[in-house]
Design a protein around this nucleic acid. Structure first.
Lengths: 366, 366
DNA sequence: CCACTATAGTTGTACGTACAAGTTGTATGA
DNA sequence: TCATACAACTTGTACGTACAACTATAGTGG
């Protein structure tokens, strides 16, 4: 038999562990004394002691001299439970991200979790670095805003490692196609559609679209932008659609806008749909620089309803982004995954158009 | 003797641990066999085994059947070292705080520390809650932006607890007078002075000052504001100095500004010094609402050189705040405190005036 | 009623023996 | 030269004894 090779104290240990599993031993309950066990199993007290001392080190038993041996909560997990959740965003200080973080932080704090923050600066190397650092010490779960998702993902291995380690995670804004996890995102395609449709409905036909192409948000907004034109039967002039990458964002769009706006009046776009509010404010600056008025000469629609939209000179018409709510929902879904092992489905937020002062209605002039 | 009460196996354990400390035992080195130790110390092999098995569980020794017992890396402390630093700010998403956090995060990440983030919402109860949560699990150090510092501090006990636990901390922006710790702050008095002096130098004499009174920053900026008037020999009309608390900030200042600006032209302030850019943008809105032009009719000076200052319609003249640099410095000073036990002195940043478009020079009209 | 004592029962410490199992080097033999 | 066997050593398992230290309780005495 193989049994003869397994040490008795190990056999006893397994026996006792099965007592925990079957519920025969409940937390706080007293375990038979060393001598009783020894007699019962036909072992010496020393052998029982060896078993007990291992189980004590592992947290299953508590031995009190003179009193007895007691079962502890099955695996001390509750008391030593790590309650720390990480959030990895592309940027920390800019734009809407602080609001997402704030929503998550408030929810986590109220649920007794600590929040670890890290930024990737939209850089794959830093993303890897952040992942390693976060997981270098105990972690309950992770909220990830992916980096440059339209391109590949060289850090896939690290994410798979998360799964192996049993660290649940979810993604916000977008997700890597290769990974299976819950996603919270805005319906960007619908947003792009609504933005363009609003302008078309207001009589604009020469609409410029500026979109980021190295993240899915930009790609989807562009998709909606095109769909709205198609639905209204308006052709999109390729030269009025400008796409750019993260590296170019401070330079290329502005120059392209200047060029478009410098053209002849009958060729000039009457409206701009901008990837986000930040870009919209920047391009409004380009228009002002050329002596054009907003919205009389050029209309603008932004995205995300950020602080910039209402702080700028001409209050910006824009599409909402759930921001704080998204952070809060992400946190609460992640906690559900951790504590109850649930696997929530994706969450899709519908952006709403917020009409302010940056769009003129061309129809009334007719 | 007391020695007789200390178990022999504990004495042996301490002896062996001292071998590690003295360097007598180096990683990988073979330890004398159980029998040798037993003979050498006049103990039974069983007693030596008890010591060895404890040291093995704690990671000091590695025992290999048939081969011997070996010393392991001296205490694995490096690998299990906690490298997590917390940062507690009043607000997370608003204004300049994301920039401070970003500076700190970048520095910490490059030094291999994780960043825990928590906000107090400028509320003493939440401050306590955050403190408790942060310290509920291992923490290396803490960066604190105090809550409502001009009032008392009911959470003093928790801060003293930090000292007892040996968790170093430092404060940014301001500090509780009762606590002795490094402080990084802007010279707000100088800032207030520079703001008022700039306006006075440009020929303004009826200058309104709006300051928060429940934090030291506001109090100090007001102090500088008054000092500049005194230095220039200009009297300050009490009705033009408005102070407010955090709770009132969205309401009272705006109404007061409307009232001041609605007065007769010869009584109306020609310029406003505002507690920060956020308030300045809000009060500029009040001026516009009354049909006044900025800066032609009313000039504005803000504080902090935030994104609002350059995103707003009229670009705001304001005073710089180190923001990102302050976060970075705070992080690096805290790491020095943790790793080298240093106690850095206070750091004072000098604000610089950034001239933009919101101040008119009245002298040229003369 | 309370304080004290004795006692039984528990785990902790300490020693002992015996043999099993694994590693290493040496001696032996083909 | 190479493979094998063996001896000597290591740690692992298992049992045994004895007493110390601690806890809880029942009984005793004031």
């Amino acid at each position: 038999m193989n049994n003869r090779r397994i040490p008795k104290y190990i056999l006893l240990k397994n026996e006792l562990l099965s007592w925990f599993e079957s519920g025969k031993l409940k937390p706080g309950q007293q375990v038979p004394s060393e001598n009783e066990i020894a007699e019962q199993f036909g072992l010496s007290r020393q052998t029982v002691r060896q078993t007990f001392s291992e189980l004590e080190k592992e947290g299953w038993l508590e031995r009190i001299q003179g009193k007895g041996t007691f079962a502890r909560f099955p695996g001390r997990r509750e008391s030593e439970l790590v309650k720390t959740i990480g959030i990895m965003t592309t940027y920390i200080s800019d734009y809407i991200f602080p609001h997402i973080v704030r929503g998550a932080e408030a929810e986590l704090r109220s649920r007794g979790y600590r929040l670890l923050l890290s930024s990737t600066d939209n850089n794959k190397d830093k993303e890897m670095e952040s992942l390693k650092l976060m997981t270098s010490q105990p972690l309950s779960g992770l909220i990830i805003e992916p980096t440059k998702s339209a391109e590949g993902n060289p850090n896939l291995g690290y994410y798979l490692e998360l799964q192996e380690k049993g660290i649940p995670y979810l993604m916000i804004n977008e997700k890597y196609r290769e990974l299976e996890c819950p996603l919270l995102r805005v319906d960007d395609e619908l947003g792009g559609y609504k933005a363009a449709d609003h302008l078309l409905a207001n009589g604009h036909s020469r609409i410029a679209g500026f979109f980021k192409r190295d993240d899915l948000q930009g790609v989807n907004r562009l998709k909606g932008f095109l769909a709205a034109h198609k639905a209204r039967g308006v052709a999109v002039a390729p030269k009025r659609v400008v796409t750019y990458t993260t590296e170019q964002k401070n330079d290329l769009p502005f120059r392209q806008a200047l060029q478009l706006l410098s053209g002849a009046a009958e060729e000039r776009p009457t409206a701009f749909v901008c990837y986000n509010d930040e870009l919209a404010v920047s391009l409004m600056g380009a228009a002002l620089q050329l002596g054009l008025r907003v919205p009389e000469d050029v209309s603008f629609v932004g995205f995300d309803d950020s602080m910039l939209a209402s702080a700028s000179g001409t209050k910006l018409t824009t599409l909402t982004h759930p921001k704080t709510a998204m952070g809060r929902d992400a946190a609460s879904q992640l906690i559900a995954m951790i504590e109850e092992g649930l696997a929530p489905g994706d969450t899709l937020y519908e952006p709403e158009l917020v009409e302010r002062d940056s769009v003129v209605n061309l129809n009334v002039n007719v």
